[in-house]
Design a protein around this nucleic acid. Sequence first.
DNA 1: GTCAAATCAATGCGAACGTCTCGGAAAGGG
DNA 2: CCCTTTCCGAGACGTTCGCATTGATTTGAC
Lengths: 177, 177
Amino acid sequence: MRVRGLGAAHDERRAAILEAVFAIVDAEGTHQVSIRRVAERAGVSVGRVQHYFPSKDELLSAAFTAINDRGTARVQARLADASSPLEAVLTELIPESEEDRRLFRVAQAFETHALTNSVLSLSLKESYDDLLGLLAALGGGPELLALALGLANLTLTGNLTAAQARAIIRSGIEKRG
Amino acid sequence: MRVRGLGAAHDERRAAILEAVFAIVDAEGTHQVSIRRVAERAGVSVGRVQHYFPSKDELLSAAFTAINDRGTARVQARLADASSPLEAVLTELIPESEEDRRLFRVAQAFETHALTNSVLSLSLKESYDDLLGLLAALGGGPELLALALGLANLTLTGNLTAAQARAIIRSGIEKRG
DNA sequence: GTCAAATCAATGCGAACGTCTCGGAAAGGG
DNA sequence: CCCTTTCCGAGACGTTCGCATTGATTTGAC
């Protein structure tokens, strides 16, 4: 195939490195992400990190798209088995478990990072456009996405519980459903 | 008084340094903030920056609270002359001018930074609690704050215009006002 | 005028940074 | 078996970082 040498574990090793990036961002913030620290956290050498991600910029960009993909995959998964798809999609945007909170914190960190990066800010906008299109197909307008995003924000800061946020989403759907 | 030597321009010089921090965050992201670069951008020496902000952490924390205070000052200013205070407060959360967008981008950057800092995350929560209290006094619930925050987010990413966001806020108020 | 406090400019230090290079191990196609 | 390709560990290079130190200057209370 296109793979010479050992190419089998390529994706797994790549994913493991990205996982180390997420762990550092979640625990200590984006400031603490460096090639050396990522390598150390992943238990690999600096050379390996650089082999899979030639530069720090590419590493961060890959991490950004990986987080994005993970988020959309979550939404798609919920769409499959849902009596009320609109509610399913929107409540999926609220972090519930501690693992959810971790994912959302990291995602927000990268979103902020993307806001000051012309390339990433474009794909960020496209991600939201996709979500808006999906919601429109389900009969919901942009106000529902905004509501869910804001509730996710307030849940992350601790001003609301996940249960409160989901309740507000449900009543928001009823009002405009 | 408590000020020996020249204490008159103390606040102004402090503010000028913080302004340089904001400019760097807005133009190149939080990653690019360093003592040296801040000093250079502000047109002062490294020593001066260190005199007013003994450590980088204190510099960033001061910048965070300065941005927060600026935001609440905006809201308070709008409250004074407002026929519909609820609408005034909420629409003030939407960035309109390019200067607004700048302010909001910087604010979001620091909010993300605060999420991974135990001290700052506490004052972040308090800020939102204050806002929630103010809204409650005006007859609005947390769903309206969430809506406005989400709309601000979508406006920053370019998925909505400020006019669209404000229109959605107005119809959101009517529905629950 | 004296003097302590406030103010900073200059410089050095050790650590960490991103990146590059080089060498060799590993592995499958021919 | 060989040879190309992938893979990656080790190390060095030059830069930048946060921070500490030092000493000069300025200021206002006394």
